[in-house]
Design a binder for these strands. Structure first.
Lengths: 171, 171
DNA sequence: TCTGCAATTGAGACTCAGTCTCATTTGTTG
DNA sequence: CAACAAATGAGACTGAGTCTCAATTGCAGA
């Protein structure tokens, strides 16, 4: 599979970040960035580990987590809560910030961005003399498809997720 | 320490819920509800376990988690993410829903509620034909006090928390 | 091109929140 | 008060994520 121009650009971007920090661009890091930017949904750390293994690249769990941490620091990847009890990751492309509608029945995730919401949040912070750096909004509920199928909303504490994912990934 | 009328009322409410479900009101559950409704900040499950132990009531971890689950189901307690990698809990009193401003420097949590924000979220859901059941908004940043002290905002992925809490709670 | 060495890696031990099991105990209904 | 389902405690277990340390590797300078 040929690497797209896009992913190669991201590798260059990451290389620049690493250089600035006096860190090194290794083959493992390169492979991980390539995979992450070829993935267009929210993924879990262990899922990424598993996919690398599938491709015959043996990269340790520690390296996966370490690289994700660097990518988050560089701003190229975001770590998000999607109603489950562990993190998901998503790559950040260009215009960047968005929030999530999460279907508690089928697990699908709809991204959205709304300037009115953002502006109102800034106003609230101002009133409370709070300096925001980041925010995180998940709306849980039932997507149009599940609604149509006559599903009933789950209790909000019982969010099950579908995943492109692979369970029992370890060892 | 005398139990307030308020907490006794909550016990009655929980008893009603349990009865409806064909479940039993045990001494452990009563003690936990009392403690939870006497606590006016966001607490962790292990913190609750530890406080019970401190009071000489030995209630197992399993019971603490099981009771919290029931309380969440009954709507009397809410499980929230506060930027850390595990859950916090808060009791729900009366008018209920709010969101959180979380200081990434000192860990303080400011609650707020804003109807404009809520209304706008409903509009967004409508436009996406999504049926919301619940939402969750955390704004991370720097509180007024930390701002005054000249603290700089942490990276958003590095949220440390103060706690009224007790580390090394197990066993 | 080669060298030196700090940065990086992998393997696996470890942590920590949360779940599960099962033998024993307890609340409630008849 | 008996019967029995529900609940409990102890501790084993799980799964995500972190840490350690010896071995390896990228890269800046000779």
């Amino acid at each position: 599979m040929p690497h797209t121009v896009r992913t190669e650009k991201e590798i260059t971007r990451f290389a620049g970040f690493l250089q600035d920090q006096g860190l090194k661009l290794t083959t493992e890091r390169t492979a991980l960035v390539r995979e992450i930017f070829a993935t267009h949904y929210h993924f879990e750390a262990d899922e990424l580990l598993f996919k690398m293994k599938e491709k015959g690249l043996k990269i340790s769990r520690a390296t996966v987590y370490r690289t994700l941490e660097l990518l988050v620091k560089s701003g190229m990847v975001r770590r998000v809560h999607l109603g489950e009890d562990h993190y998901h990751y998503e790559h950040v492309t260009g215009n960047s910030h968005h929030d999530h509608l999460i279907c508690t029945t089928c697990g699908s995730v709809i991204e959205f961005h709304d300037d009115v919401l953002e502006q109102r949040q800034r106003e609230i912070c101002e009133r409370k003399r709070f300096t925001p750096t980041f925010h995180n909004l998940q709306i849980l509920g039932l997507c149009a498809d599940c609604r149509k199928k006559g599903e009933l909303p789950d209790a909000p504490d019982r969010v099950k997720m579908i995943g492109a994912g692979a369970t029992q990934l370890r060892k």
